[in-house]
């Protein structure tokens, strides 16, 4: 019996959300008195895999089949199921990403396991039960869920767990081959198009997010959001009206029907704070609201607020942020 963590690569390195999942998996393993193994797929540097030792991973199973460089759910499922079988894994841990949650759902069927996505706590394992807390009602509440099957599958909410580091340990990397057939790639993507991320910060992974609303008056003023984001090493986001008006692309829309983010710092500029928007951001650790309307409901959910015109306030913030020593 062991804990198996699926880690995703990005540009040859391991995604931060997967390092969080690895840290989580190691803590679950310690709770259960066992060890944590990772499984990795596709284009990841071997040094990056070995470094998972810092998150307490003892061994990494690695399938380097280049067809796996793109996400193909059925093929990924086959590789991870093989790793799970080889390790007699009873707990499988994923990041709650589009990939992790998709593969986790399929594995729940294949391995006859219980699945919880969007998980925010370590399991409570008193008296033989296995209960985790997960975010529900789009950030407005949490639910405690008992996973009742023998195999438990957990997709960990992004930025809900610290990346642990025990300094210097390395994991052993072992090759894994799942004998994939062409049929496993029937739904392989024809084309993968990555966004221009400019500063290189992906919104779902970002620790700091700078977000703009209709208060910015038009897409031509977005340099304010972008410059502040750049100065802080942040990703940019927007409110629903802004993406509906096509001022910004849909993938930047944060809220109940957009993406949910939980960064350490969320800075909202010219966003009034409708309940649907708050649902997408209210698990952020610190929220800053800048709005010229002192009655904007967002101030009630904020840690810091500035009542003022974005066109006066934001340049001052940019200047102060640029002056910070990194």
């Amino acid at each position: 019996m062991s804990v198996l963590v699926f880690v995703e690569g990005f540009n040859g390195e391991i995604k931060k959300s997967s390092l969080e999942a690895a840290s989580y998996g190691n803590q679950v393993a310690q709770q259960l008195g066992t060890t944590a193994t990772a499984v990795a797929i596709g284009e990841v540097h071997e040094e990056a895999l070995a470094k998972l030792g810092e998150q307490g991973i003892s061994k990494v199973l690695y399938d380097a089949d280049s067809r796996l460089n793109q996400f193909v759910a059925d093929a990924y499922v086959k590789v991870i199921a093989k790793a799970a079988q080889q390790e007699s894994a009873k707990v499988l841990v994923f990041s709650n990403s589009n990939i992790g949650a998709a593969v986790g759902s399929k594995l729940a069927v294949r391995l006859n396991g219980s699945l919880a996505t969007n998980v925010t706590t370590l399991p409570k394992t008193d008296g033989g039960s296995f209960v985790v807390t997960r975010g529900v009602f789009s950030g407005k509440a949490f639910a405690d869920v008992a996973l009742t099957s023998d195999v438990k599958i957990i997709a960990v909410k992004k930025n809900a767990f610290e990346v642990s580091s025990n300094g210097g340990s390395t994991a052993t990397v072992e090759k894994l081959s799942a004998d994939l057939a062409d049929a496993d790639f029937a739904a392989a993507p024809k084309e993968t198009i990555m966004q221009e991320t400019d500063g290189g910060v992906l919104l779902p992974e970002a620790e700091i997010v700078v977000s703009g609303g209709r208060g910015l008056k038009g897409p031509e003023n977005w340099h304010l959001v972008e410059d502040l984001a750049k100065a802080l090493g942040a990703a940019t986001a927007c409110s629903k009206p802004v993406s509906d008006l096509d001022w910004r692309p849909h993938h930047e829309h944060v809220g109940q029907t957009g993406i949910t983010v939980s960064p350490n710092l969320y800075i909202a500029i010219g966003i009034s704070g409708a309940i649907q928007h708050l649902a997408g951001v209210n698990s952020s650790k610190v929220i800053v609201v800048i709005n010229k309307d002192p009655e904007a409901p967002f101030f009630k959910a904020a840690d810091y607020g500035i009542v003022g015109d974005a066109f006066d306030v934001v340049p001052k913030l940019i200047e102060a942020a640029r002056a910070l020593d990194k």
Binding site: S114, A141, L147, N282, D303
Partner: peptide
């Protein structure tokens, strides 16, 4: 396979510093 045993709500913020 998942048994919903209880619910809770996020903690209220401590108040905004202007």
């Amino acid at each position: 396979k998942a048994d919903y045993v209880g619910y809770s709500k996020p903690e209220k913020k401590g108040g905004v510093k202007m």
